[in-house]
């Protein structure tokens, strides 16, 4: 996946929705029929089991942010939309990845992993499974770093985000 550079083309929307069947289809259907592009999407329950939270990264080349937010807001099951400007959000993403790791290259790999702050999840005969949590840009960089080793399988969650805390609050 070609993840966004942190420029103004991509905005993150944190959308609280009612935890009801079909709600994800409503959101996805809205994006599809209005021609809005989703760069990434993460969905999970919140601490209140009546609601789920979607973190949607929207490609603003496809539509103005204002329209995306207003159309989303018209969905009856959408309870709240928080728009996180690039720079005002804490964003995290999880990647798990299996890479080629012949015994003679493992030290090198683990050194890179330690430097990035990742973890070894599993070790096989000639492969290792690693995980890394971080801002999407760091995940991108680490993914590029791993490529020369040979990526066997890779899975990213898409980003989740919350607003930066206000120092005065």
């Amino acid at each position: 996946m070609n993840v966004a550079e942190p420029d103004y083309r991509y905005h993150t929307l944190v959308v609280t929705v009612e935890n009801k069947s079909g709600v994800l289809a409503r959101v996805a259907g809205l994006f599809a029929r209005r021609g809005f592009n989703i760069e990434s999407l993460a969905v999970a329950p919140t601490d209140d089991d009546r609601f789920s939270r979607l973190t949607i990264v929207v490609d603003l080349e496809s539509a103005p942010l204002d329209q995306v937010v207003k159309q989303l807001d018209k969905l009856v099951n959408v309870v709240e939309i928080r728009e996180l400007h690039p720079g005002s959000a804490v964003e995290r993403e999880l990647m798990i990845v299996t890479v080629e790791a012949e015994p003679d290259r493992r030290d090198e790999l683990v050194e890179q992993l330690d430097r990035a702050g990742g973890k070894v999840l599993s070790v096989g005969a000639d492969r290792m499974m690693l995980s890394l949590v971080g801002p999407p840009k760091r995940i991108d960089e680490f993914e590029n770093l791993l490529r020369p080793f040979g990526i066997v399988e890779l899975q990213r969650t898409g980003r989740v985000a919350l607003a930066v805390l206000d120092e005065d609050a």
């Binding site: 069947s21 079909g22 289809a25 409503r26 259907g29 029929r33 009856v76």
Partner: peptide, 14 residues
């Protein structure tokens, strides 16, 4: 029915 009519109704319920 709710899937088919999702985009042609203001809202629908099952």
């Amino acid at each position: 029915t709710t899937g088919i009519t999702m985009s042609v109704t203001k809202h629908n319920f099952l």
